[in-house]
Amino acid sequence: MEEKKKLRQELINQREALSKQEWQEKSLALCEHLQQFLAHATVVSPQRIILSYFYFRQEPNLDPLFELKQYNWGVPRCVGETLNWHCYQPSDPLEKGKFGIREPKPEAPLCPVEKVDLILVPAVGCDHRGYRLGYGGGFYDRLFEQSPWRDIPKVGIIFDFAFVPKVPVEAWDIPLDGVCTDCGWRISL
């Protein structure tokens, strides 16, 4: 557990040390890789939903993807110990959640899980096995344990320096199906 905490802090410090310009350039490069993937992917069907997130502490910024009108988007709202997923369009009103992260308002329509094709998962770090290092709150781990969430393809989103040789793993950790960075796909979906 101490090893996990140390690695988490090292990677967060490295991410937060990026200049604003580096952060923006890396985020845009990552969005380009995801956009190319989505343009050719058979994983996402028309009228289905891609779940994403709003960046926090200089995580990769995926906001430009929300402008791709050919896809339906969902974003999380933290409710207690769980994530509720709400449909989202760039014109929708947002508010700051309990962790200071932008969230949809509680009245925003919920995403039906049976219409979700793909989950873009924020991470502090990932490894070649698909294991993800998060912030330690367990929100995504609890989500991925539940059926039908466990069967939906999950892609870890990190900057390339956060693709590490090995993430310390707990018994409850569920590996991701893919990992995409600003340098491209480290684990292809």
Rank of each mutant, 00 (worst) to 15 (best):
L7A: 07
R8G: 03
L11D: 10
Q14M: 11
R15Q: 08
A17S: 15
E22D: 14
W23C: 05
W23S: 02
W23D: 01
K26N: 11
K26F: 04
L28W: 12
A29S: 14
A29P: 03
C31P: 00
E32R: 11
H33F: 12
H33V: 00
L34G: 03
L34S: 10
L34N: 03
L34H: 07
Q36S: 11
Q36H: 12
F37L: 15
H40M: 06
H40C: 04
V43G: 06
V44K: 11
P46H: 02
I50K: 03
I50Q: 00
Y55S: 14
Y55T: 10
F56H: 14
R57K: 14
Q58V: 11
Q58A: 08
E59F: 01
E59I: 00
P60K: 00
P60S: 12
P60A: 10
N61M: 03
L62R: 05
Q70T: 08
Y71T: 06
W73F: 04
G74K: 14
R77I: 01
R77K: 08
V79L: 05
T82A: 07
T82W: 02
N84R: 07
W85S: 01
Y88V: 02
S91M: 07
P93K: 15
P93D: 13
L94P: 04
E95T: 13
E95H: 08
G97Y: 05
I101T: 05
I101F: 11
R102W: 09
R102Q: 14
A108W: 04
C111R: 02
C111S: 10
C111Q: 10
C111K: 03
C111A: 14
V113I: 15
V116C: 02
D117A: 10
I119V: 15
L120W: 09
V121D: 01
D127I: 03
H128M: 05
H128W: 06
R129M: 06
G130N: 07
G130R: 08
G130H: 08
Y131K: 08
R132N: 13
G134Y: 06
G136P: 09
G136A: 13
G136K: 09
G138S: 07
